[in-house]
Amino acid sequence: MDTYKLILNGKTLKGETTTEAVDAATAEKVFKHYANEHGVHGHWTYDPETKTFTSTE
């Protein structure tokens, strides 16, 4: 398992979190669920070199 990072740049919520996942697709599902639960619906990007997802509203 690898550690993946999420950076949230929402209108009402900003911050970072991490998750352990078997691959990027699994981490993306976890992070999108997390963002949706916190009302963040933004544009998603992923940097495979740093294993970092960013959601920007």
Rank of each mutant, 00 (worst) to 15 (best):
D23E: 03
H33L: 14
E16N: 06
D47C: 09
G42Y: 05
T52L: 04
H38A: 12
G39L: 05
T45F: 08
G10M: 07
T3C: 13
A21N: 02
D23F: 02
T54I: 07
G39K: 06
H38M: 15
A27W: 01
K32D: 03
F31L: 07
Y46L: 02
T50G: 04
F31I: 00
G15V: 15
E16S: 10
A35H: 01
E57N: 04
D23G: 03
T45R: 06
K14G: 06
V30I: 15
H33W: 10
Y46D: 00
Y34W: 12
K5L: 08
T18G: 03
H33R: 14
V40C: 04
V22L: 12
M1G: 09
K29I: 13
T3S: 07
L8Y: 11
A24F: 12
W44V: 04
A21V: 03
K11Y: 12
H43T: 14
P48K: 08
E28A: 09
I7V: 12
T19K: 03
A35D: 01
M1F: 12
A24C: 13
S55F: 15
H43C: 14
L6F: 08
E16C: 15
I7M: 05
T50K: 07
F53T: 00
M1P: 10
T54A: 06
E57K: 02
G42W: 14
P48L: 06
A21I: 01
V40P: 02
P48H: 08
T17Y: 15
E37I: 13
N36W: 14
V30C: 07
A27Q: 00
T56Q: 07
E37H: 09
H41I: 11
G42T: 04
S55G: 06
K5W: 08
N36P: 02
K11Q: 13
T56N: 09
A21E: 03
T26I: 07
T12D: 13
D47Y: 05
T45L: 07
Y4M: 01
T12M: 09
E57H: 05
K32R: 15
K5Q: 05
H33N: 12
D23R: 01
K51S: 03
E37L: 14
H43W: 13
H41D: 13
H38L: 14
K32P: 01
T19I: 15
T26Y: 07
E49H: 11
N36S: 13
T54K: 05
D23C: 04
Y34S: 01
E49I: 10
W44S: 01
H33Y: 09
L6E: 02
T56M: 07
L8R: 00
G10Y: 13
T26L: 05
F53S: 00
A25G: 08
W44C: 04
V40L: 08
L13S: 09
K51G: 03
L6G: 02
K11W: 11
F31Y: 01
K29H: 11
A24M: 11
K11E: 11
T50F: 06
E28Q: 08
N9E: 09
P48D: 09
H33M: 14
D47V: 05
N36C: 12
F53A: 00
E49V: 11
T50D: 04
V22E: 13
K5G: 03
T18P: 01
G15Q: 14
T52Y: 02
K14Q: 13
I7Y: 06
I7P: 01
V40H: 10
Y4W: 04
I7F: 06
E49M: 11
Y4F: 10
D2K: 13
N36V: 12
Y34P: 01
T17D: 02
H43V: 15
H33A: 15
G10S: 08
E37V: 13
E20D: 11
G15I: 15
T17V: 15
E57L: 04
T18V: 09
G10E: 03
V30P: 00
T18A: 06
G10K: 03
I7E: 04
T26M: 11
H41K: 11
N36L: 15
D47I: 05
K14Y: 13
W44K: 00
A27L: 01
V30G: 04
W44G: 01
F31C: 02
E28V: 05
H38N: 11
V40M: 08
G39T: 03
S55N: 13
K11T: 14
Y34M: 05
H41E: 11
M1R: 10
D47T: 05
A24T: 07
W44M: 09
A24G: 04
L6V: 03
M1C: 11
T12V: 11
K14D: 05
Y46C: 02
L8K: 00
T3Q: 08
V30Y: 15
V22A: 14
S55R: 03
T18R: 07
V22C: 12
K11G: 09
G15N: 10
Y4C: 04
K29R: 12
L8T: 04
D2H: 15
V22R: 12
K32I: 09
A35P: 01
K51V: 01
P48C: 08
T54L: 07
